[in-house]
Design a protein around this nucleic acid. Structure first.
Length: 806
RNA sequence: GCGCGGGUGGUGAAAUGGUAGACACGCCUGCCUUAGGAGCAGGUGCCGUAAAGGCAUGGAGGUUCAAGUCCUCUCCCGCGCACCA
């Protein structure tokens, strides 16, 4: 009796052998074509590895192993996104220093990943919280600073009172803190920003050059929010002032019945003397100030606002004056902070007009030429042809937009304008566990960048990191008080740290050259390995990390550091694995699955297979605690199959299905359809089991196909049948289409499109012979008898459809 | 409201316009046994005792010899964004 499959023994053995041999190191000297396969590097949380991590890493591991077998020089690295709030929050709770807990967690993660048999090049491991790394994060800050892409300004910013820090817009979506889910308040604070808006157009345009999931591309486009419209001025009667408004619907301008300013608009203050009801207006502005962003933007069906009595703005197209309002539904920080209101063609204007009893005039009609304009019970926001619009009558909306823009330009009142919703990236944080911002404030010299050779600005370890709203670093005497690098006088260091997303915006570059002491990465190394060919991670960072990383690449490209404009050429997301109850895994629900448990009971190979077999990688899917049994049984069958291997066995017996499987598995790995690749291998094993004996060649092919998925057991069996080098150094089997064709084929027989039977014939049977055979069969003939055969449709090798009529 | 995905057995899911439910889990019936989360053989969409047959991919139409797949309308679910003019 052959030895039983002992996953613990096998997996431990091979992991040690691979590590000793340095099997998965990327080769700097190889002439083979490169393939850079990257996982979104993890934040080493105290909870350890999660089945979701395992899903992500197994998928790219399979892909990397496959690419190695296909002759590529693969770079597949791993590192740690180690800075960040959770470590600090944990520290506050337990009084364990973030540096200590983070490094303990990294150790746990590393061990867990190794037991999964993930083929990382561990020699390139990086840790964003190490001075060797954050020195370059600081260097990037200075690069941006010196080129005007990093600046400090006082602005209304998102403040999370529970995290005691400011947040970027991207981290405060919907007015809620991305980390702790608490409501975010608006505060006027002086903060550091990166000028991501400078690249807004490129960030939109270059999305066309990458192979990313369509929803991710759509989300980024949506976030950047490009809009094309016109900006024009409107004179204010009886004053020398004018209002500039921005609109994307200039074609509706003849329907303008009023104008709205954002309450914070500067004109309000300047025109105060002309406003008759200024007390009421000021009161409204005060009320607005007290509202949070969320309250202001909440699905407030109820519109509020105040008319500026005594003031009117003139519509340049009609020459007619319209009233001016302030209302908080108009945002001060977008466009010009003022809009023309066309209630017939804008829902918000419509609601406002209803409330204030303002005229609603329809000027774009979908039923042109409509004799009368209907009474509207909601705004018509679509296109149509223009009515009541003077010389523009009868034009389509899109033509009118062009013509009206030209009209404004000719009169020098307005111009075409592109606006973006994207705002600059707020990067300073009033927290401890992050890279210090390398700036010094001198009473004489002002803002002074830390000289490059003074980097890194070390994060002091002896700091009370409990957040107070004041940056913890300001409390460290030795850190905070320094002398000015310019004049040598007493000065103070910037005490804010950088958003952790800054650290992760360039880590993929560092992997190309992780030990470099003179640059963030050598130019040659980056040109060799980058851009990333395959990037994989969760779909939750579509706007944050992926946008920031693209921004960094664009900055570096514009300064000539790198030749590429996009960092991640191909991107795929793995779907979230839910708990067995179909809910999101969480400690409080007690439905969290730990991969260790399954590695222990069934082995890493079985776990890897199960996670890949669960369903399409990108789908969200529930965990089935019993589901691993199928893949485990499959591996045992592969193990037992070894007993049937005979050198003299006939290879042809299984050729057809074998080659079909080679094709299917190869194609599926390239498409990330691992579930169907596994199913194809199961079919192959089922077929092999039916045979008395299997040729060594066929069995080897099976092991090679399976090796990216189940690397341990396949290497063990590979050696058992007489190979001396690791299976992971072998080539992927070559598909031979001539061997794919079976000698017998099954043809479906349809009568009038309905399946009535099947027939098995020799591969090269002529069509007429098949027709004859089919019609001779009584079970088929009974459907045809008494009817006229109108047509016979033959799909070669697949199907015969007899179309009958009465 | 807008954008992106989806709706197929008891479950996870397969299907270049060409035999719907591959592959697996579960379940049922045998066999075997060192009684195991074993192994082997067979069965398992629904209606029909069975056979014959019929019905089935959210719903309604349509195109086609042939539709889960293409087209129109519609319902439902998930995710993301949301007063950006």
């Amino acid at each position: 009796m052959a030895e039983k499959y002992d996953h613990k023994k096998v997996e431990k053995k091979w992991q040690a052998i691979w590590e000793a041999a340095g099997m998965y190191r990327a080769d700097e000297k190889s002439a083979k074509p490169k393939k850079y396969v990257l996982d979104m590097f993890p934040y080493p949380s105290g909870d350890g590895l999660h089945v979701g991590h395992a899903e992500n890493y197994t998928a790219t591991c399979i892909y990397s192993r496959y690419m190695r077998m296909k002759g590529f020089n693969v770079l597949h690295p791993i590192g740690w996104d180690a800075f960040g709030l959770p470590a600090e929050n944990y520290a506050i709770k337990t009084n364990v220093h973030p540096d200590e807990s983070t490094h303990k967690n990294i150790k746990t993660f590393s061990e867990q990943i190794k037991t999964l048999g993930i083929s990382y090049d561990w020699t390139r491991e990086i840790d964003t919280s190490s001075p060797e790394y954050y020195r370059w994060t600081q260097w990037f800050f200075l690069l941006l600073y010196k080129n005007g892409f990093a600046y400090k300004k006082k602005a209304k910013v998102n403040w999370c009172d529970s995290c005691k820090t400011v947040l970027a817009n991207e981290q405060a979506e919907g007015g809620v803190c991305e980390r702790c889910k608490n409501m975010v308040a608006q505060k006027d604070l002086e903060q550091w920003f990166f000028k991501i808006t400078h690249f807004a157009e490129d960030l939109i345009k270059d999305l066309d050059t990458v192979d990313w999931p369509s929803s991710t591309v759509a989300q980024q486009r949506n976030w950047i929010g490009k809009s094309e419209g016109v900006e024009f001025g409107m004179d204010i009667s009886e004053t020398n002032e004018s209002i500039r408004v921005y609109t994307t619907r200039i074609d509706t301008v003849f329907g303008m019945t009023y104008v709205v300013l954002a309450p914070e608009h500067q004109l309000v203050e300047r025109l105060r003397a002309f406003i008759k009801n200024s007390a009421e207006v000021l009161a409204y502005i005060e009320t607005t100030k007290k509202k949070t962003e969320l309250e202001r933007t909440e699905l407030a069906k109820e519109k509020t606002g105040v008319r500026l009595d005594g003031l009117e703005a003139v519509n340049p197209f009609t020459g007619k004056p319209v009233p001016i309002f302030i209302a908080d539904y108009v945002l001060g920080n977008y466009g010009t902070g003022a809009v023309m209101a066309v209630p017939a063609h804008d829902e918000r204007d419509f609601l406002f007009a209803k409330k204030f009893d303002l005229p609603v005039v329809m000027v774009v009609c979908p039923h042109y030429p409509s004799p009368t304009c209907p009474v509207l019970d909601e705004a018509y926001t679509g296109d149509g042809k223009l009515v009541m619009s003077g010389e523009f009558d009868g034009l389509t909306s899109s033509d009118a937009r062009e013509r009206m823009a030209e009209w404004l330009e000719k009169k020098e009142i307005g111009f075409k304008k592109v606006n973006y919703r994207l705002r600059d990236w707020l990067v300073s944080r009033q927290r401890y566990w992050g890279a210090p911002i390398p700036i010094i404030y001198c009473t004489m010299c002002g803002e002074v960048p830390v000289p490059e050779d003074n980097l890194p600005v070390l994060l002091p370890k002896d700091v009370d990191f409990r957040p107070t709203g004041e940056s913890p670093l300001a409390l460290s005497e030795s850190f905070h008080n320094v002398s000015c690098p310019k004049c040598g006088m007493k000065a103070k260091r910037e005490s804010d740290t950088m958003d952790t997303f800054v650290c992760s915006s360039w880590y993929y570059l560092r992997f190309a050259d992780p030990k470099n002491k003179t640059a963030f990465a050598g130019k040659g190394a980056m040109e060799k390995w980058l851009p990333v060919d395959m990037y994989m991670g969760g779909a939750e960072h579509t706007v944050l990390h992926l946008l920031y990383a693209r921004f960094f690449t664009k900055v570096l490209n514009s300064f000539g550091f790198v030749s590429f404009k996009e960092p991640f050429m191909k991107l795929r997301h793995q779907g979230m694995i839910l708990g067995a109850d179909g809910r999101k895994m969480s400690k409080s629900l007690g439905n969290v699955e730990n991969p260790n448990k399954y590695i222990e009971s069934d082995g890493a190979d079985a776990l890897r297979l199960y996670e890949m077999f669960m369903g399409p990688l990108a789908d969200m899917k529930p965990w089935n605690p019993n589901g691993i049994i199928g893949p485990r049984r499959f591996l045992e069958r592969v193990w037992r199959l070894k007993q049937k291997v005979l050198n003299t066995a006939d290879e042809k017996a299984i050729d057809s299905v074998l080659h079909k499987t080679i094709k299917k598995v190869g194609d599926d790995i390239e498409e990330f359809s691992f579930n169907t690749a596994i199913s194809a291998m199961m079919i192959l094993v089922n077929e092999m089991e039916k045979l008395e004996v299997i040729s060594k060649g066929a069995y080897e092919t099976l092991l090679l196909l399976l090796s990216p998925f189940a690397p341990h057991i396949t290497d063990e069996l590979w050696h058992d049948i007489g190979n001396t080098k690791s299976i992971h150094l072998a080539s992927f089997p070559v598909f031979d289409s001539s061997k794919c064709i079976a000698s017998e084929i099954t043809i479906a027989i349809q009568i009038g499109g309905k399946l009535r039977g099947t027939i098995v014939v020799e591969r090269d049977t002529p069509e007429d012979t098949i027709k004859g055979l089919v019609l001779a069969r009584p079970d088929i003939a009974k459907w045809v008898n008494g009817k006229i055969i109108k047509k016979i449709i033959m799909v070669k090798g697949k199907l015969l459809n007899i179309v009958v009529g009465d």
